[in-house]
Design a binder for these strands. Structure first.
Length: 515
DNA sequence: TACTATCGCTCCT
DNA sequence: GCGATAGTA
């Protein structure tokens, strides 16, 4: 997903960093990145028994990283994606079917005793659901970790927070795996952060100043830079075939004017630019520049950057392409994690809060007994609960894994998280009612990373992870909306087969024109 | 030759 | 996302 190849292209401007560099500062986290990685470690449980303790290991993964940050005196600010409308485009169905297929095949392999193959398939079937995000939010609340649910894209929200001062709720950098943050003009981004806090840092300001490896962005401003990204292809608009990061850079570098680049490209016989490409291009650029975000201070929706007059004219006053405005009370309820942005239902009506005790009790201890050991994460350390004979009902044996030194020390005493110690009578795995799918209005513009489409998918926490706009069915079909460009091309192949006559971009035009 | 497109593999414990 | 490689202007 994001801009294909952008990270590789920007490699000369990306430097190693350790999270401790941001000690004393606030750093934003793209929740999806860590949820996704965490879910990888328990994909089988999420598929086979989503309500089991093991299926919540993704929370352990997430909290380990949160506590790593806190250990280094970094203040984490977790940002979640908003939801999406229930659009049933062909691509969604394809994607959904693929996941279903992976699930079915995975179960088959498991029955046949081929666990390795089954796990491989379960990894392809697993998805991040609103329920998973909500359960994480409960833990974040009890751990006093600041979080916000973006009205639409988490990326835009993070880029916005990066423009604010810390006393306004701003952040000094963003931790993500998504190259879109670069296109949004985010000032400092940490990619590929590992469990020790090592990552790779991109700084926009530095990039626009430095000349390196034959790349020079000195004549670029933020708009040209974002234009280059859009030109290279993004989730909202595929690139003109044959144009990737390098040619996009060359074109912008040569003309230093987007209008000129587009008209040159249109006249270039080597490429075939769709008729509506230029129109779509400007609207996509408008999204990257002015997406709707939530402002914590004023508790209302704002634009990432104030709207320029030319866009106002261009969009003819219709700003819904940036995501429709929401009533402040609703925007706030979503941002604070009280309202499911997919269904617009109150979470509390349907989901039960999981207390940290229950969480650790089930996910750490039960898993420990099943798998040998389980990590519990505190602000200071990673504590491994062992399922050895030493473990008793009331006090578990644990190993403190010092985050800084990497040393393992056997320890049976002081636990910063005394409350996480198991209760004498371990409670059964928490039953969490899933959010019921409800008839959601078609104009619900949310992102569809977490959209349950039927009861079956709910039962296994299944949802798709694509991007979704307030689109008509046909327009949705035209937008590549997967995180991976591979899937994107697969979808396109399928789409071409299932609907040969459809110009894949006509839908996007309809989308823009409809609004 | 330079670049884009595509494939298979890897993320997790 | 990465590296390797196939395809193309």
């Amino acid at each position: 997903m994001g801009i294909p190849n952008l990270l590789r292209f920007m490699k000369p401007f990306i430097e190693p960093v350790h999270i401790k560099k941001y000690a004393g500062q606030r750093v934003g986290i793209d929740a999806y990145s860590w949820l996704h990685k965490g879910a990888y470690s328990c994909s089988m449980e999420l598929c086979m028994s989503p309500r089991s303790a093991g299926a919540r290991r993704y929370i352990s993964y997430f909290m380990h990283h949160v506590n790593l940050l806190r250990h280094h005196k970094v203040v984490p600010v977790v940002v979640f994606d908003g939801g999406s409308m229930p659009c049933k485009s062909a691509t969604d169905e394809d994607r959904h079917k693929k996941r279903e297929l992976s699930l079915v095949l995975g179960k088959e392999k498991l029955e046949q005793g081929n666990t390795a193959a089954a796990i491989d398939l379960f990894r392809k079937a697993v998805q991040i659901t609103p329920s998973m995000a909500y359960q994480l939010i409960q833990i974040l609340k009890t751990e006093n970790v600041e979080f916000v649910v973006a009205p639409y894209e988490a990326d835009a929200q993070l880029a916005y927070l990066a423009t604010l001062d810390a006393d306004q709720g701003g952040i000094a950098a963003v931790i993500t795996e998504d190259s879109d943050l670069i296109a949004y003009g985010c000032t400092a981004i940490i990619f590929k952060m590992d469990r020790f806090g090592n990552g790779e840092e991109f700084r926009m300001e530095k990039t626009l100043k430095t000349v390196k490896d034959g790349l020079c962005f000195q004549d670029f401003d933020q708009n040209l830079f974002t234009g280059m990204c859009v030109l290279a292809g993004c989730d909202f608009l595929p690139s003109v075939p044959g144009i990737g990061t390098k040619r996009a850079y060359s074109l912008i570098s040569k003309h230093k004017n987007i209008d000129l680049v587009l008209s040159t490209l249109k006249l270039d016989k080597r490429y075939s630019m769709p008729d509506d490409y230029i129109d779509s291009f400007w609207k996509t650029l408008a999204v990257f520049n002015h997406a709707r975000v939530y402002d914590v201070k004023s508790k209302s929706l704002k634009h990432l950057k104030p709207l320029e007059e030319r866009y106002l004219n261009y969009l003819a006053g219709n700003l819904d392409i940036l995501g429709p405005a929401l009533a402040p009370s609703m925007a706030r309820a979503i941002a604070e994690g009280r309202l499911n942005p997919v269904t617009m239902e109150t979470f509390d009506e349907f989901s039960r809060t999981i207390s940290p005790v229950e969480f650790i009790d089930t996910s750490a201890l039960n898993v420990a007994s099943q798998y040998g050991s389980q990590e519990i994460l505190t602000q200071e350390s990673t504590i491994t609960i062992c399922s050895s004979e030493e473990s008793r009902d009331d006090i578990a044996a644990f190993v403190v894994d010092d985050i800084t030194s990497g040393e393992q020390k056997c320890n049976k005493g002081v636990l910063a998280l005394g409350k996480f110690l198991p209760q004498k009578h371990s409670s059964p795995a928490v039953e969490c009612k899933e959010v019921k799918p409800k008839n959601t209005p078609d104009n619900n513009p949310f992102k569809k990373r977490k959209l349950p489409t039927d009861q079956e998918s709910l039962d296994r926490n299944g949802v798709s992870t694509g991007l979704c706009w307030p689109l008509t069915q046909e327009s949705v079909a035209s937008i590549p909306n997967e995180r991976s460009s591979k899937r994107q091309s697969q979808q396109e192949a399928i789409r071409n087969i299932t609907n040969k006559n459809k110009d894949e971009r006509s839908g996007l035009l309809k989308f823009f024109m409809r609004l």
